[in-house]
Design a protein around this nucleic acid. Structure first.
Lengths: 205, 205
DNA sequence: AGGTATCCATACACTTTCGCATGTAAAACG
DNA sequence: CGTTTTACATGCGAAAGTGTATGGATACCT
C-alpha cells in the first residue's frame, strides 16, 4: 500500500503534526528527530520529507493550527452594549481566551513554543511571543483608554499603567499554568484574578 | 604550556562557564556544542571534559553561580520596623530582587533557563522554575497573611488571592523583561508596578 | 630533587541525524 | 484504459557531536 487518496494524504499530514506535538512536548523540539516523529505516527521519514521541507517547516505548520488573535476574541463577543463598558469587554475577552487555551491542542502548542523550544534555523520563538504580546497589549490599551474617558477607571491610574498591570498578570498566570502542566484550571483561576484586578481598578463607589 | 597553577585552572573553569553563557544565550543550549564553548574560551574540548562530566554537568554548574532565594532578600533588609508594615517589606524585597536581576550575569542565566533551554538528560528547567516560584510564593503568602491580621489589606481580598495576583504580575513582568532582552529597566518598571499594585490592595483611607 | 598528580591538547571510534536519491504501487486524469 | 503524477518507503553518503583513551609538560608535594 503506497499511494493514498487525497483525503488520506491530508489525514497523514495531520497525524504527523499530532505526533510532532506529542514528541516535542515530551522530549523537547531539539531532542526529537524526524525519525521519531514519523515512527510515532506510523510512518517513515519519507512521509515527513514529502509533506514538509524540514523540521523548521513542520514546526511552522504546527503553529499555524493554533493562531488566535486577541482582537478577534473581543469582536466575537458581538454585544453592542459592551462599548459602554470597556472593562467588562476586557473581562469577557479574557475569559473567552482562557476557554480557548484549555483545549488540549492549544495548551500543548503554546507550552512547546514557550517552554520546549529554543531558537533554531528559521524560527525565533521569542520574536513570535513578542509579536503576540504586542498585539494583545495594543488592544488592551485601547479599551483602558476608552474606560478612562468614560470615567470607569481610577484617575490615579493611567491607561498605560493599567495595561501593563493586567498584561503582566495575564502573562504570569499563563506561564504558571503552562509550567504546571495544566494542573489547575486557567479558566477558573484566570476568571477570579481578572475579575478582582479589574474591580480594584474601578473608581470607588 | 600545559600544566597551570591552581588559580589559573580555576580561572579557566570560570572562563568556560562565561563562554557557555554567551553561546547558550546566542544559539540556545541544545544548538551549542562543547567544541564551540571551548573554542570561544580559547580552549579545546579536553578542558571542558576535565572540568565537567558533560554538558548537563556544565549547565548545572552555571546555574549554581546565580542562585538567589527570595527569603534572603527580605532578611537582608534587616529593618525591625518592617514587621509592622508587611506590604512595605514586600515592596522593598521586590525592589531588591530587581536590583539583583539587572546584573548582567543574573539576567543572562535566567534568560537561558527560561527561554533558551529545553529538557535534556539530567536537567529539568521547568522543575527548577517551579521550585523557585513555590519558594517565593510561600514567603509572599506569609507577609500578606500578616498584613491581613494587621488590617492593612482590603478585607474583600484574601491573602491567598493577593499572593496570586502579585505573584502572577511579577512573573509576567519577569518574562516580558527577559523576552525583550532587557530593553527596559525591570528595576524602574517593576518598582512602579509593585507600588501601584500594593497601593490598590490597601484599605481605603 | 625526584616522583606524582594535575591540567589540558590531540586523536580516534562510535552514534545520531540529516538531506537526497531512488524505487514503487496505486490514485488521478484525459 | 493507458499515462502521469502522487504519496510514500527504502537506502546511502556526508556531517556533526559525543565520550574516551592517550600523550605530554609542568606545578606541587615530600
Amino acid at each position: 500500500m503506497v499511494r493514498k487518496t487525497k483525503a488520506e494524504a491530508a489525514a497523514t499530514r495531520e497525524a504527523l503534526l499530532d505526533a510532532a506535538e506529542e514528541m516535542f512536548i515530551q522530549h523537547g523540539v531539539a531532542r526529537t528527530s524526524l525519525e521519531q516523529i514519523a515512527r510515532h505516527a506510523g510512518m517513515t521519514r519519507g512521509a515527513v520529507y514529502w509533506h514538509f521541507k524540514n523540521k523548521a517547516d513542520l514546526f511552522h505548520a504546527m503553529l499555524q493550527r493554533v493562531r488566535l488573535p486577541f482582537q478577534e476574541l473581543v469582536e466575537a463577543l458581538d454585544d453592542p452594549e459592551l462599548v459602554k463598558k470597556p472593562l467588562e469587554a476586557i473581562r469577557l475577552a479574557c475569559i473567552s481566551g482562557f476557554e480557548h487555551l484549555e483545549r488540549p491542542r492549544y495548551r500543548r502548542v503554546h507550552a512547546i513554543l514557550i517552554h520546549h523550544c529554543e531558537v533554531f534555523s528559521d524560527i525565533d520563538p521569542l520574536a513570535m511571543q513578542n509579536e503576540m504580546a504586542e498585539e494583545s497589549c495594543g488592544a488592551l490599551r485601547d479599551y483602558f483608554q476608552c474606560a478612562a474617558r468614560l470615567g470607569q477607571l481610577r484617575n490615579d491610574i493611567s491607561p498605560a499603567l493599567a495595561t501593563q498591570l493586567l498584561q503582566s498578570m495575564l502573562g504570569g498566570l499563563f506561564h504558571d499554568w503552562l509550567r504546571n502542566d495544566g494542573s489547575f484550571s486557567i479558566y477558573e483561576e484566570g476568571s477570579r484574578l481578572v475579575k478582582t484586578q479589574l474591580a480594584l481598578m474601578q473608581p470607588h463607589p
